[in-house]
Amino acid sequence: MNNQQTTTDNQSQYGYRGRGCGPFSKMFSGKGPFSGKGPWGGAFGNRKAANIEETDSVFKISLYAAGLVKTNFKISVSNDILTIAYNAPEGNKSEESKFAYQEYQPSSFERSFQLNGKVLTDSISAEYIDGVMIVTMPKNPDTNRPAQEVNVN
């Protein structure tokens, strides 16, 4: 493991630089906000940013992954873990592809999210629009109940 992938106890509990320490961090992960390869859910240099939105009926993960090919995504659920993976095609290393300067190169990645029984996994849907992979997950009504108030006597 290189120095970029090491983490302190505080970072692994609450996410990279404190991000992800809200209700979703506990709901979607067993060890901080992300699970999977590396301490933040992927290779350090290729971790794709994700937002998780909650409505009354669904959770939506918006994974920002611009410039990729929709058919190279694979989304799966196994053991109550949702995995979004991208398999980058082998680059065409022809003589014509000589860059004077290059900051972007599509590469493979994987992000995983622990669902903790909160989602109806048979009804998950996904779409890739304008560089954002949107995964919609209907809530499981049996496990998503509002908090109840307890009267103190």
Results as ranks from 00 to 15, higher is better:
Gly38Ala: 07
Glu95Trp: 13
Gly22Cys: 11
Gly30Tyr: 11
Met27His: 00
Val69Ile: 13
Leu82Phe: 06
Lys74Arg: 10
Glu96Met: 12
Thr71Ser: 15
Ala49Ser: 15
Ser78Asn: 15
Ala85Leu: 03
Val77Thr: 14
Lys60Trp: 00
Ala66His: 09
Pro89Cys: 08
Ser94Asp: 13
Ala65Glu: 07
Gly42Glu: 15
Ser29Pro: 01
Ser57Met: 01
Asn79Pro: 01
Gly67Glu: 03
Ala66Lys: 10
Lys60Ala: 07
Ser25His: 02
Ala85Ser: 15
Ser62His: 12
Lys37Asp: 12
Glu95Asn: 09
Lys60Pro: 00
Lys70Gly: 02
Lys93Tyr: 14
Gly30Asp: 10
Gly36Asn: 08
Leu63Gln: 10
Asn79Arg: 14
Tyr86Ala: 06
Gly41Asp: 02
Gly30Leu: 08
Thr83Asn: 11
Asn87Lys: 13
Leu82Ser: 06
Lys70Ala: 15
Lys74Gln: 14
Asn92Ile: 12
Asn72Asp: 15
Ala85Gln: 13
Phe59Thr: 01
Glu95Arg: 05
Asn79Phe: 07
Ala49Arg: 05
Ser62Lys: 08
Ala50Gly: 03
Thr55Phe: 09
Phe44Gly: 04
Trp40Lys: 01
Cys21Phe: 12
Trp40Thr: 04
Ser78Lys: 15
Ala85Tyr: 02
Pro23Thr: 02
Asn51Ser: 11
Phe59Gly: 04
Asn51Ala: 08
Gly20Thr: 04
Leu63Cys: 08
Thr55Val: 04
Pro33Lys: 06
Gly20Asp: 02
Leu68Thr: 05
Ala65Met: 03
Ser29Phe: 02
Trp40Ser: 05
Gly38Val: 04
Gly38Leu: 08
Glu54Asp: 07
Ser35Lys: 03
Ser25Ile: 01
Ser78Glu: 15
Val58Met: 01
Asp56Gly: 05
Glu96Arg: 07
Ile81Trp: 02
Phe73Tyr: 14
Asn87Asp: 15
Lys37Asn: 12
Phe28Leu: 15
Ser25Phe: 01
Val69Phe: 04
Asn51Ile: 04
Ser35Met: 15
Ala65Leu: 02
Asn46Leu: 04
Ser29Ile: 01
Asn92Trp: 06
Val69Met: 10
Glu54Trp: 00
